[in-house]
Simulated assay, not measured.
Amino acid sequence: MVRHVVRITGLALGSLLIACGSGDDTPLMQEEPQALPRLVHLEPGAEVGQGAPEGWTSRVVRSVPRLVSGDLASLPDSAGATATRFRTVITAEVAPPEPRRRPARLVRVGVGNAVPVGNRELVVTRHGPPEAFDSLGVVDRVVLIAAEAKLHRGRLIARSPTFALFQTPTVLVVEGKHREVNLHYALIVEPTTGALTTFCWPDPASDSGPIDAVLRLAPELSFDAGLDARVTRRIGPAPVSWSFAMTSPPPGDRIPLGFGDATALTSHTDVDRLERMLRSLAEQPVNTRRPPRRAKR
């Protein structure tokens, strides 16, 4: 039972795991150093199903897990329900520009796990809210606790007043195997307008060389996160535990990288260079487009 629960926890994070311009050409003046964006965990009970929760300007990403491949025939209904119950949400708060005084900036990045409650979708933690936590079964609650621990492993590994690079662990199908990798979300704010652009990329496979492309995500992306289920243990012929992994990163416009870009992408200590490189990518035409998969309500 414990092994079964532990394996299920892999999916909870794997299903991961704006503004106005001044209309004035006068240069924006920054009168004092601005604070760097901070990472926060969304408050229990925050409503995320219809867009940004209260106090936030953008729901950057919302993933809804769906079982799509693997050993589905052997998967009990209860395990499948737990595997698709939790949704991962990333939000952002952008402070708009103040004409002639201060450029727009990224104030904070929020992360959380949510579950459907009636016709709403609420962030849930072990502390509530009661209407969400009470809807979870015993196994769901064990998964939730493990998912919270994994969520706390997420970090902002590079940041400036207009940029944040969020790194979070997830389980992804890589070369046909389930592997824990880091997903990176780069949030970039245009200083003069407050417009938000988000890029995403996973760690490269160990033997596939450097990162060769990034994904530019659609604004307010909500997508179905396909899950692959694999039996990891049997007692006799009967499967007793499973692993779950995202079949691919979030969908987006694929933007190829040159060698210099790939090098900058891994140089998290040179924040200015990394931010400049990503801003230049945001201005490039898209070579390969793939429409985002819209998550079902």
Rank of each mutant, 00 (worst) to 15 (best):
G55F: 00
T9P: 00
L281E: 05
A205P: 13
R254P: 04
A195M: 06
L265I: 13
V64N: 12
I157R: 10
S222F: 02
A146S: 12
D228L: 07
L144N: 04
F223P: 00
T247W: 02
G252W: 12
D203C: 05
M246G: 15
L136D: 03
P116D: 12
V231F: 08
R38M: 13
R141S: 04
R101P: 00
M1K: 13
G80P: 09
L183Q: 10
F86W: 07
R105M: 08
M277R: 10
E148I: 02
A146Y: 05
S222R: 14
G154V: 04
V189R: 01
E54L: 14
I18F: 07
F133S: 05
E175P: 02
P204S: 06
E148Q: 14
G112P: 06
F133R: 12
F166P: 00
A132R: 10
H184W: 10
S78T: 13
T9V: 06
R289I: 06
R290G: 04
R273L: 13
A114V: 01
R100P: 01
V89T: 15
P96K: 12
D71H: 15
E121H: 03
V139S: 04
P96T: 04
A205I: 02
T232A: 13
D272C: 01
S15Q: 11
A92I: 03
V64H: 14
I235P: 01
P292Q: 08
R293E: 10
V89G: 08
V64R: 15
P161F: 05
G49W: 00
P37W: 10
L17W: 04
A35Y: 04
I90G: 04
D253F: 07
D224T: 13
A295F: 02
C200P: 00
R59F: 00
D261R: 08
F259D: 14
P53V: 07
L36F: 13
S243F: 06
V2A: 13
P285H: 09
P291M: 05
I157D: 11
E148D: 10
S63K: 09
S267K: 13
G80R: 03
L278G: 06
S15E: 10
V68F: 07
P33T: 14
S208I: 01
A195N: 09
D77G: 13
T168S: 12
A147K: 03
R216D: 03
L11A: 14
A229S: 13
E121W: 00
L274C: 07
R290N: 08
A81N: 10
R3Q: 14
P239Q: 04
V89E: 09
C20Y: 09
V173L: 12
L265V: 11
I157A: 07
D25M: 10
G80I: 01
L13I: 09
P161R: 11
S206L: 12
V271I: 15
L278H: 08
R153W: 01
V48Y: 00
A186V: 02
V64K: 13
R7N: 14
D71T: 09
R101E: 11
T232Q: 13
T197C: 05
S222V: 09
Q50G: 10
T288H: 11
G14A: 15
G51Q: 11
T125Q: 09
G51V: 12
R100A: 12
D77Y: 01
A104C: 07
R102H: 08
E31Q: 14
P103H: 05
V189C: 06
A52N: 10
L183D: 02
L227D: 02
A282F: 06
S206C: 01
D140S: 08
